[in-house]
Design a protein around this nucleic acid. Structure first.
Lengths: 210, 210
DNA sequence: ACAAAAGTGTTTTTTATACACCCATGG
DNA sequence: CCATGGGTGTATAAAAAACACTTTTGT
């Protein structure tokens, strides 16, 4: 079976920074050739019998030192020349990671520096897919926001992913249509500048994977 | 690199039968173990350096004896036990094939018999994705309908994929919004029972791959 | 002339977006 | 009591679906 192509899993590790109101992408410096010292998406070679999700979790742990909350498939890249070591399939997965972990290098999703391999292309091709998953894919959305979040955070996340800040009223209606999501009677403490305290939303179950 | 997983490409080969007004799925009897004699999706092991599309074309040619018009990615299946020979990733692709070729076994997409491996699951999981591609993915739509087709065929194909027959008027407006698709001034000969002859539609360019 | 099927124009329904105004908090 | 921002209700716009009626063919 020496003639088969190798498979790598490359991860778009995402973290929602509530303070900066931005979605951050986790990247890491490559420790060895090829592209030693260059920045790249965290990726690992898929082990025999390993599931894609497990490989993504492993990549995030090894290369970023973070714990993954949820993952999902994006696209598979198959240009034979994408890895100088030889033909390697790359299955791109998104991974929502815990925002508490400090981790290594995090960059705004809309301002990613040049990356090794064909990772610039991977990020570019996957960017619109991530945007489409917000509010439509509960695992994705819950992974970024956590099990409990405020309307203010939802507004910020939506603006970060779509580029437009929705009207609070309309977003509230959108969220009420998301299966598994419930508005609670709680209210968060409001921001330093004052303003009405936003209500808290919560996911009912752990929200199944996509 | 002995510890890497193998990759197979499994193809949902689709053919639009204008006579039967149905979308047919190409399946083939497995010539050897495992599942010798059982029906399965045409699939091949991905060769080193081979592109997914090329592997899909090869699978369709080898197992079905048909020529492929267009292909596209669907999902990747990664259950380690899906192939009794050992862990094998399966990348599912759709392929639109020329309807003229007689080929081997063709079954209605909505009445697929039990298949080997996890191919029942692949068909079930991919079915809604195919439905979503109609009129949205020009390569997919053009692949099924050919470069020139009538409104009547468009109605039939839509009914076959979505389960509902649209109003001719509304489908016409939908088609006018599809990039690259133009209504010609030609009219096809009408059906035996009479009725107004439908107009002919044509794709401008060969319609790029998705 | 009649039945069948496509096409044109219009109405109705649904959904998404925008807005006006009220509410709750910090300064 | 004013600034700040979330929330409720409603208006407007855009998109989708449904319908009435005309056109073009075969019998």
């Amino acid at each position: 079976m020496i003639e088969s192509t190798l498979v790598s899993v490359d991860v778009l590790a995402l973290r929602f920074d509530t303070g900066a109101r931005a979605v951050l992408l986790g990247i890491s410096e490559r420790p060895q050739e090829p592209f030693a010292g260059a920045l790249a998406l965290p990726g690992v070679l898929l082990r025999r019998g390993e599931r894609l999700r497990d490989a993504a979790v492993r990549a995030a742990a090894d290369k970023l030192g973070v714990k993954v909350r949820a993952t999902g498939q994006l696209i598979t890249f198959d240009e034979p020349s994408r890895d100088p070591r030889g033909p390697t399939l790359s299955v791109a997965l998104w991974a929502a990671v815990d925002p508490s972990a400090a981790g290594r290098t995090w960059v705004p999703l809309d301002d990613v520096p040049h990356l090794a391999f064909d990772h610039d292309r991977i990020v570019a091709d996957c960017r619109p897919l991530l945007r489409d998953r917000l509010w439509r894919d509960p695992a994705f959305t819950a992974g970024l926001l956590g099990t409990e979040f405020t309307t203010a955070q939802a507004l910020d996340l939506t603006e970060a992913l779509t580029g437009e800040r929705p009207y609070p009223a309309n977003l509230g209606r959108t969220m009420e249509r998301v299966p598994g999501l419930r508005r609670t009677t709680q209210h968060a403490a409001s921001l330093p500048k004052g303003g009405r305290p936003p209500s808290v939303w919560r996911w009912e179950q752990p929200a199944a994977q996509a």
